[in-house]
Design a protein around this nucleic acid. Structure first.
Lengths: 342, 342
DNA sequence: CTGAAAGCGCTAACAA
DNA sequence: TTGTTAGCGCTTTCAG
């Protein structure tokens, strides 16, 4: 249908210049005279010219495309961060190529390869833990990348994130401060997830520093769902002695935990304190509102975009960008029953 | 660093065949002999060959890339649908190129053009309402597309969605059935959003059919946020006579409305019934849980992928796919005070 | 079943 | 400032 689309040569013919000039006029306008520029622009417009990205990419080795490899968009946090990333890229004329691996590190390398095949100029990855083969792949193709959601203290990789461990310590220390000694943790799946592990480690460290035990039965690992949070909480409630505070690795698990307490008539926070991690929008509409840690998802996406574009432009830039997290005390935490403090 | 990456010719040399054969072996394995295939695969593997997408696209006019133009990933519904779409595409070796327009129809055409420039094989659009220039653009480039989240009854465009108007009627009819006569609506922004308009229209139709008035002051349009829902509800509560039921155009507004009632000591559903639309995960953790309409977001994303791939494969397929929505009665609705029925 | 050869549309030296 | 020219790496006729 319709005549075939206009190409560079057609614009050149109409504007009565060479195709090289059209190419320049369109990508580096200041390299051509004002008069020529106008003729070219008019010609391009009247022919409704749209550049052929593949041809341009083949020649220039640039696609103006950035790949993001994330676990899943079903998680609101990744969705928000991806949205911010996409927006920041779009504003600078880059397009986002998206791939999800659903927490499967094998899939990650596979989809990354497919993004490379599509010619991404750079990649945004989630987390600091990746298959060594992935880094080899990136090095082979000389593809710039940035790790997000976590910090790489080794200084080997560009990264933008926050300190999950320290944030988790803050949560634990707060609970200890207000008098809790019987503390448990419902953690997200730790296998292949350095963020989950860092949060668990932070809690362990904080308790240990106060000589508080964290026996195995008080650490339950659960998949990312409200239902799993409920089930984990059911086990916690059956423990003797029952913990007076339960730290959850993320808000979804925490919501499940709170709901389970509601369902069993266990008062929150009077009988048990519960904390989350992430500060999803739903955390504040929960009753009582959830005490949690706010993760700067949007800032993360934007910072990742800045990092990666700086690399593409050969700018130096910081290798590591650490973002601040806020600890937000709301209604699901209180001193344990019978405690005198605060 | 490292030697430059292997290309098709390198594989050909190592496998001792022509590059044409390598190309065939890799993309249409059944066209070459088993022995050759194996030699080629071994060679490709040992050289860690990754095809050069741009070159392949330039020649074959196929990028194996599908573009999605959505309002924003900040909305959980679009995020879930996009996730499902991405997953379905990835399973068939297509990659998703993402662009967001944040509800700006001008931006929509701009970002669509950039996706076309990147060479997308097809496009997934949200909603039935688009600038005519957008359709012209698609036609000029002969790009297959599918509209989602709404139905195009005109039969002009391939679409997969559900009937927002009928779903909204169902909500209104239910409220009427249980005795409500003083009904109001908090609708999402209708400008440039056919989904919002359809929902409002459905409510109007249902009320009209029962000779119930819906005066202008009982229709408040609010942006997509809990805060806006709260503010709109504040106005509703100040109305005299006060509505006994408020239909919200989406769950986010409904959650805001419920929270405002909590804050002002207005009992839900005893004093006022509230309904949502979409059935986000948070809808069920609200107290009381939200009566709402479940939208099949994941099915939508999958169906869109099927539709678009069928078109690319030249299959006929249904022009229109209508998905079913469920009306879910939970805790925020009840007969009005003093009413005898159910 | 396999090879030879001709570009796809564009950009980047290099000249003018 | 502008034009000429030579491919980028791959696929696809067309022969063999």
């Amino acid at each position: 249908m319709t005549k075939s689309t206009a190409k560079l040569a057609d614009v050149a013919r109409l504007a009565q210049v060479s195709s090289a000039t059209v190419s320049r006029a369109l990508s580096q306008p200041r390299m051509v005279s004002v008069a020529t520029l106008k003729r070219v622009e008019d010609a391009a417009q009247s022919l409704r010219y749209v550049p052929h990205g593949a041809a341009s990419a083949l020649r220039s080795r640039r696609t103006h495309t950035i790949g993001a490899v994330i676990p899943t968009l079903d998680n609101a946090l990744f969705a928000h961060a991806t949205q911010a990333l996409q927006k920041a890229l779009q504003e600078r004329d880059y397009t986002l190529l998206l791939a999800c691996h659903e927490f499967d590190l094998n899939a990650e390398i596979k989809v990354t390869r497919s993004l490379i095949e599509r010619g991404v100029d750079a990649l945004v990855l989630v987390g600091a833990e990746h298959d060594a083969a992935l880094f080899t792949l990136l090095a082979d193709f000389g593809i710039p990348y940035v790790l997000t959601w976590a910090l790489d203290r080794s200084g080997c990789h560009p990264c933008v994130g926050f300190d999950n461990r320290v944030a988790a310590m803050r949560v634990a220390n707060y609970l200890i401060d207000i008098g809790h000694r019987e503390i448990a943790m419902i953690t997200g799946i730790t296998a292949g997830n350095d963020r989950s592990r860092a949060r668990l480690a932070g809690v362990r460290d904080a308790l240990e520093a106060h000589d508080i035990e964290l026996p195995p039965q008080r650490v339950i690992e659960a998949p990312y769902s409200i239902a799993a949070g409920r089930e984990a909480m059911r086990h916690m409630l059956a423990l003797a002695p029952r913990p007076t505070a339960v730290i959850c690795g993320n808000d979804v698990l925490a919501m499940g935990a709170v709901l389970e307490c509601h369902a069993r008539g266990v008062a929150v926070p009077a009988a048990v304190s519960i904390t989350g991690f992430d500060d999803m929008e739903a955390a504040s509409i929960l009753v009582p509102a959830l005490t949690t840690v706010r993760i700067p998802m949007r800032e993360l996406g934007e910072a990742a975009a800045r990092q990666i574009l700086a690399q593409l432009n050969g700018a130096a830039g910081a290798l590591m960008t650490e973002l601040a997290v806020d600890f937000i005390v709301r209604g699901t935490t209180a001193p344990p029953a019978g405690h005198e403090n605060t």
